[in-house]
Protein backbone atom coordinates (compact mmCIF):
# COMPACT_ATOMS: atom_id res chain seq x y z
CA UNK A 1 0.00 0.00 0.00
CA UNK A 2 1.96 2.97 -1.27
CA UNK A 3 -0.86 5.47 -1.66
CA UNK A 4 -1.74 7.52 1.37
CA UNK A 5 -5.22 7.35 2.81
CA UNK A 6 -7.28 10.34 3.91
CA UNK A 7 -10.71 10.88 5.41
CA UNK A 8 -12.42 14.19 4.62
CA UNK A 9 -15.71 15.05 6.27
CA UNK A 10 -18.21 17.23 4.43
CA UNK A 11 -16.79 16.30 1.04
CA UNK A 12 -19.85 16.68 -1.17
CA UNK A 13 -19.43 20.42 -1.71
CA UNK A 14 -17.45 23.54 -0.87
CA UNK A 15 -14.01 23.36 0.70
CA UNK A 16 -14.34 19.65 1.49
CA UNK A 17 -15.07 18.72 -2.11
CA UNK A 18 -12.25 20.94 -3.41
CA UNK A 19 -9.81 19.39 -0.93
CA UNK A 20 -10.90 15.87 -1.90
CA UNK A 21 -10.28 16.67 -5.58
CA UNK A 22 -6.97 18.33 -4.71
CA UNK A 23 -5.67 15.22 -2.93
CA UNK A 24 -7.07 12.81 -5.50
CA UNK A 25 -4.96 14.69 -8.06
CA UNK A 26 -1.98 14.09 -5.79
CA UNK A 27 -2.81 10.36 -5.91
CA UNK A 28 -4.21 9.99 -2.43
CA UNK A 29 -6.99 7.56 -1.60
CA UNK A 30 -9.85 9.66 -0.24
CA UNK A 31 -12.81 8.50 1.84
CA UNK A 32 -15.34 11.29 2.10
CA UNK A 33 -18.68 11.68 3.78
CA UNK A 34 -21.72 13.90 3.90
CA UNK A 35 -25.41 13.68 4.72
CA UNK A 36 -26.37 12.55 1.26
CA UNK A 37 -24.87 11.30 -1.95
CA UNK A 38 -21.32 12.11 -2.95
CA UNK A 39 -20.51 14.26 -5.95
CA UNK A 40 -17.06 12.96 -6.86
CA UNK A 41 -16.46 10.16 -9.35
CA UNK A 42 -12.95 8.80 -9.06
CA UNK A 43 -11.50 5.30 -8.68
CA UNK A 44 -9.70 6.30 -5.48
CA UNK A 45 -12.69 8.05 -3.92
CA UNK A 46 -15.27 6.33 -1.74
CA UNK A 47 -18.26 8.19 -0.36
CA UNK A 48 -20.09 7.41 2.87
CA UNK A 49 -23.54 8.72 3.70
CA UNK A 50 -22.88 9.80 7.28
CA UNK A 51 -24.27 12.30 9.74
CA UNK A 52 -21.04 13.29 11.51
CA UNK A 53 -22.83 13.63 14.83
CA UNK A 54 -24.13 10.05 14.72
CA UNK A 55 -21.68 8.01 16.77
CA UNK A 56 -22.40 4.59 15.29
CA UNK A 57 -22.23 5.85 11.69
CA UNK A 58 -18.88 7.51 12.36
CA UNK A 59 -17.50 4.39 14.07
CA UNK A 60 -18.60 2.20 11.17
CA UNK A 61 -17.16 4.49 8.51
CA UNK A 62 -13.77 4.89 10.18
CA UNK A 63 -13.43 1.17 10.88
CA UNK A 64 -14.41 0.27 7.32
CA UNK A 65 -11.75 2.58 5.93
CA UNK A 66 -9.14 1.27 8.38
CA UNK A 67 -10.06 -2.36 7.64
CA UNK A 68 -9.83 -1.81 3.90
CA UNK A 69 -6.51 0.04 3.82
CA UNK A 70 -4.99 -0.99 7.16
CA UNK A 71 -4.15 2.66 7.89
CA UNK A 72 -5.51 6.20 7.90
CA UNK A 73 -2.80 8.77 7.28
CA UNK A 74 -4.81 11.97 7.47
CA UNK A 75 -8.14 13.23 8.77
CA UNK A 76 -9.49 16.55 7.47
CA UNK A 77 -12.36 17.41 9.81
CA UNK A 78 -14.07 19.88 7.52
CA UNK A 79 -17.81 19.24 7.92
CA UNK A 80 -19.61 22.21 9.37
CA UNK A 81 -22.76 24.28 9.33
CA UNK A 82 -23.20 28.00 9.97
CA UNK A 83 -25.90 30.21 11.31
CA UNK A 84 -26.27 33.95 11.82
CA UNK A 85 -28.48 35.30 14.51
CA UNK A 86 -28.27 37.36 17.67
CA UNK A 87 -27.87 35.27 20.81
CA UNK A 88 -31.18 36.52 22.22
CA UNK A 89 -33.00 35.39 19.10
CA UNK A 90 -31.34 31.98 18.79
CA UNK A 91 -33.27 28.81 19.49
CA UNK A 92 -32.03 25.93 21.60
CA UNK A 93 -32.55 23.54 18.70
CA UNK A 94 -30.28 25.64 16.46
CA UNK A 95 -27.62 25.80 19.18
CA UNK A 96 -27.77 22.03 19.61
CA UNK A 97 -27.64 21.46 15.88
CA UNK A 98 -24.56 23.68 15.44
CA UNK A 99 -22.72 22.05 18.34
CA UNK A 100 -23.61 18.55 17.21
CA UNK A 101 -22.29 19.00 13.70
CA UNK A 102 -19.37 21.37 14.26
CA UNK A 103 -18.02 20.19 17.60
CA UNK A 104 -19.36 16.71 18.35
CA UNK A 105 -18.80 15.64 14.74
CA UNK A 106 -15.17 16.76 14.91
CA UNK A 107 -14.79 15.07 18.29
CA UNK A 108 -16.16 11.73 17.11
CA UNK A 109 -13.92 11.63 14.03
CA UNK A 110 -10.88 12.69 16.09
CA UNK A 111 -11.59 9.94 18.60
CA UNK A 112 -12.12 7.13 16.12
CA UNK A 113 -9.39 8.10 13.64
CA UNK A 114 -7.06 8.85 16.57
CA UNK A 115 -7.40 5.22 17.69
CA UNK A 116 -6.35 4.03 14.23
CA UNK A 117 -3.46 6.49 14.05
CA UNK A 118 -1.91 5.66 17.43
CA UNK A 119 -1.84 2.02 16.36
CA UNK A 120 0.47 3.02 13.50
CA UNK A 121 2.24 5.69 15.56
CA UNK A 122 1.78 8.23 12.78
CA UNK A 123 -0.90 10.46 11.33
CA UNK A 124 -2.15 14.02 10.94
CA UNK A 125 -5.47 15.43 12.01
CA UNK A 126 -6.50 18.83 10.68
CA UNK A 127 -9.61 20.37 12.17
CA UNK A 128 -11.44 23.31 10.66
CA UNK A 129 -12.17 26.39 12.71
CA UNK A 130 -12.94 29.91 11.47
CA UNK A 131 -11.84 33.49 11.93
CA UNK A 132 -15.32 33.98 13.39
CA UNK A 133 -13.90 32.61 16.66
CA UNK A 134 -11.02 35.07 17.31
CA UNK A 135 -12.90 38.02 15.80
CA UNK A 136 -15.89 37.57 18.15
CA UNK A 137 -18.26 38.45 15.34
CA UNK A 138 -21.66 39.78 16.34
CA UNK A 139 -24.43 37.50 15.17
CA UNK A 140 -22.16 34.48 15.05
CA UNK A 141 -22.03 33.50 18.71
CA UNK A 142 -23.23 29.94 18.16
CA UNK A 143 -21.02 29.27 15.15
CA UNK A 144 -17.98 30.93 16.74
CA UNK A 145 -18.53 29.07 20.02
CA UNK A 146 -18.65 25.75 18.23
CA UNK A 147 -15.40 26.61 16.44
CA UNK A 148 -13.77 27.79 19.68
CA UNK A 149 -14.61 24.35 21.07
CA UNK A 150 -12.94 22.75 18.07
CA UNK A 151 -9.82 24.82 18.73
CA UNK A 152 -9.64 23.70 22.37
CA UNK A 153 -10.20 20.09 21.30
CA UNK A 154 -7.34 20.49 18.81
CA UNK A 155 -4.89 21.81 21.38
CA UNK A 156 -5.64 19.27 24.10
CA UNK A 157 -5.75 16.32 21.71
CA UNK A 158 -2.35 17.40 20.39
CA UNK A 159 -0.96 16.91 23.89
CA UNK A 160 -2.71 13.60 24.38
CA UNK A 161 -1.42 12.21 21.08
CA UNK A 162 1.95 13.97 21.02
CA UNK A 163 3.89 10.94 22.17
CA UNK A 164 2.16 8.71 19.63
CA UNK A 165 3.51 10.44 16.52
CA UNK A 166 0.13 11.95 15.65
CA UNK A 167 -0.16 15.69 14.99
CA UNK A 168 -3.37 17.66 15.55
CA UNK A 169 -3.75 21.17 14.15
CA UNK A 170 -6.49 23.48 12.95
CA UNK A 171 -6.98 25.85 10.04
CA UNK A 172 -9.16 28.95 10.41
CA UNK A 173 -10.22 30.19 6.99
CA UNK A 174 -11.47 33.70 6.29
CA UNK A 175 -14.67 34.05 4.26
CA UNK A 176 -14.34 32.30 0.91
CA UNK A 177 -17.02 31.81 -1.71
CA UNK A 178 -18.86 28.67 -0.62
CA UNK A 179 -22.45 27.80 0.30
CA UNK A 180 -21.52 28.27 3.96
CA UNK A 181 -21.48 32.05 3.61
CA UNK A 182 -24.06 32.18 0.83
CA UNK A 183 -26.72 33.65 3.12
CA UNK A 184 -24.41 36.15 4.82
CA UNK A 185 -25.04 39.74 3.61
CA UNK A 186 -22.21 41.20 1.53
CA UNK A 187 -21.70 44.11 3.95
CA UNK A 188 -21.05 41.63 6.79
CA UNK A 189 -18.46 39.82 4.68
CA UNK A 190 -16.86 43.17 3.84
CA UNK A 191 -16.70 44.07 7.55
CA UNK A 192 -14.89 40.81 8.35
CA UNK A 193 -12.40 41.34 5.55
CA UNK A 194 -11.64 44.83 6.88
CA UNK A 195 -10.48 43.26 10.15
CA UNK A 196 -7.99 41.00 8.38
CA UNK A 197 -4.36 42.01 7.86
CA UNK A 198 -4.68 41.00 4.22
CA UNK A 199 -7.96 42.50 3.05
CA UNK A 200 -9.40 40.07 0.54
CA UNK A 201 -11.57 36.96 0.49
CA UNK A 202 -9.70 33.72 0.90
CA UNK A 203 -9.38 31.20 -1.89
CA UNK A 204 -9.39 27.45 -1.95
CA UNK A 205 -5.67 27.50 -2.80
CA UNK A 206 -4.96 29.45 0.41
CA UNK A 207 -6.52 26.65 2.44
CA UNK A 208 -4.95 23.82 0.44
CA UNK A 209 -1.50 25.34 0.89
CA UNK A 210 -1.77 25.35 4.70
CA UNK A 211 -3.29 21.89 4.62
CA UNK A 212 -0.40 20.58 2.49
CA UNK A 213 2.04 22.01 5.02
CA UNK A 214 0.29 20.58 8.08
CA UNK A 215 0.01 17.04 6.70
CA UNK A 216 3.53 16.98 5.28
CA UNK A 217 5.67 14.31 6.97
CA UNK A 218 8.26 17.02 7.59
CA UNK A 219 5.72 18.83 9.80
CA UNK A 220 5.87 16.16 12.52
CA UNK A 221 7.09 18.80 15.01
CA UNK A 222 4.12 21.07 14.31
CA UNK A 223 1.12 20.21 16.49
CA UNK A 224 -1.50 21.92 18.64
CA UNK A 225 -1.47 24.97 16.36
CA UNK A 226 -4.37 27.00 15.04
CA UNK A 227 -3.50 28.82 11.83
CA UNK A 228 -5.85 31.61 10.83
CA UNK A 229 -5.69 32.85 7.27
CA UNK A 230 -5.65 36.48 6.21
CA UNK A 231 -3.49 37.63 9.09
CA UNK A 232 -6.20 37.30 11.74
CA UNK A 233 -4.74 36.86 15.23
CA UNK A 234 -6.30 35.43 18.35
Amino acid sequence: MKKKVMIITGSSKGIGKSLAEHYLKKEWIVAGCSRGEGSINHDDYEHFNVDVSDEQSVVEMVRRVYEKFNKIDVLLNNAGIATMNAVLLSSLSKAESIMRTNFLGAFLFCREVGKAMIRKKTGSIVNFTSVASPLNLEGEALYASSKASVERLTKILAYELGSSGVTVNAIGPTPIDTDLIGSVPEDKIHAVIQRQAVKRKGSFDDIAHVCDFLIDEKSSFVTGQVIYLGGVCD
Partner: peptide, 11 residues
Protein backbone atom coordinates in the same frame (compact mmCIF):
# COMPACT_ATOMS: atom_id res chain seq x y z
CA UNK B 1 -2.01 6.05 26.46
CA UNK B 2 -1.23 2.36 26.67
CA UNK B 3 -4.71 1.69 27.99
CA UNK B 4 -6.20 3.75 25.14
CA UNK B 5 -4.22 1.68 22.63
CA UNK B 6 -5.31 -1.54 24.31
CA UNK B 7 -8.99 -0.58 24.19
CA UNK B 8 -8.67 0.47 20.54
CA UNK B 9 -7.02 -2.81 19.66
CA UNK B 10 -9.60 -4.88 21.52
CA UNK B 11 -12.35 -3.02 19.62
Amino acid sequence: MGLVMLIALVE
